[in-house]
Amino acid sequence: MTTTTHAFDTAISLTDNGIGQHTGQTTPEYANMVGPFGGVTAAAIVRAIESHPERIGEPVALTVNYLAPVTDGSFDVVVHPVRTNRTNQHWTAEVLQQHGVTTTATAVFGIRRDAWSDTQAAMPGVPDPESVPDATVPGPVPWMRNYDMRYVQGDVPTEPDENASSTTTLWVRAQPARGLDFAALAALSDVFYPRVFLRRGAMVPAGTISLTTYFHADGAELAAQGTDYVLASAHAQRFARGYFDQSAQIWGRHGALLATSHQIVYYKD
């Protein structure tokens, strides 16, 4: 039987030299307006740390700083375990190309244990994904075609009218279907188009500078999600002097909060 590698796995495929340096290759399927989709870069960093022989536990937190666009071609991911404690481990990472460092990151991996749990956030009340039209964007941004996107609120603006709200909520999953893991969840944390597009009702130059994702689920909980949709919701707090923030939540269909994220974005107006 012939098996086909999912385009996402090809995009984050890395060769390992055994000492914490990995080499990858950009793919046209995950191209953005400038360079590759930031989410797939974050996913490649997660995959590099997961592959390291000294890694313990699973991702707990990841902060990715986008210094410059990754250009088409090969790139290196260098990861380094800075400190290992009893239940958590701290990492640094860099993405490098011939013209220099394009991306830096820090990550925390941890061994999760049974403990008292509670979820303070509330999942938005929305219709099931099957009752929401598929709004996958067929336009000039290739990476978006890799997701089945069903907007409940705040879909991509098509009219030049400002909106009072910066909130977007959508059901989303990989297209074609792929099981959810930590690398895919890291990418989904950056699945939203810039909030300034929604507020202004028009596309303006914008790009993420720094993205932090907190992983609340463990590997077994992610595996249980299978290829199902997740509910992703994001909003901004303030747009000022060329920067805005974004806070987001990623929920499983049945109400499990899988991840939260925060990012700062540069824009021109």
Rank of each mutant, 00 (worst) to 15 (best):
Glu130Tyr: 06
Gln25Glu: 12
Glu50Leu: 13
Val64Phe: 00
Ser210Cys: 03
Gly35Gln: 05
Val141Met: 03
Ile12Arg: 01
Tyr266Asn: 09
Met144Ile: 04
Glu58His: 09
Arg113Phe: 14
Gly39Ile: 01
Val46Phe: 02
Asp181His: 03
Ala232Met: 01
Val230Pro: 01
Ile45Pro: 03
Ala61Gln: 11
Glu221Gln: 15
Glu94Cys: 12
Gly179Ser: 12
Gln25Leu: 06
Gln225Ile: 05
Val172Thr: 14
Ser261Asn: 06
Asp114Pro: 06
Thr41Ser: 07
Thr168His: 07
Gln21Arg: 12
Val46Ser: 03
Val230Leu: 06
Pro140Phe: 09
Ala93Cys: 12
Phe37Ile: 09
Thr41Trp: 03
Leu14Glu: 04
His52Ala: 06
Thr167Asp: 11
Asn65Ser: 14
Ala61Leu: 07
Phe8Arg: 01
Met144Pro: 04
Gln225Met: 13
Pro142Asn: 07
His22Lys: 08
Gly139Trp: 13
Glu221Asn: 07
Ala259Phe: 00
Thr168Phe: 06
Val132Thr: 10
Ala259Leu: 02
Leu222Lys: 02
Ala61Pro: 04
Trp143Lys: 08
Ser261Ile: 07
Ala187Gly: 02
Ala105Lys: 15
Gly139Arg: 09
Thr92Ser: 14
Ala248Tyr: 00
Asp134Ile: 10
Leu67Asn: 07
Ala174Met: 15
His216Leu: 15
Leu62Tyr: 01
Ser117Leu: 11
Trp91Cys: 10
Arg113Asn: 15
Val204Cys: 02
Asp76Arg: 14
Ala174Val: 10
Trp171Gln: 00
Asp76Leu: 13
Pro194Ser: 13
Leu231Val: 05
Ile45Met: 01
Ala93Glu: 09
Ala43Asn: 00
Thr158Asp: 08
Thr213Gly: 00
Pro140Cys: 06
His22Met: 10
Arg199Gly: 06
Pro157Gln: 02
Ala105Arg: 15
Ala7Asp: 06
Ala122Leu: 15
Gln153Phe: 07
Ser117Met: 12
Asp269Met: 07
Val70Thr: 08
Asp148Gln: 06
Ala240Phe: 11
Glu58Asp: 11
Ala223Pro: 08
Ala206Asp: 03
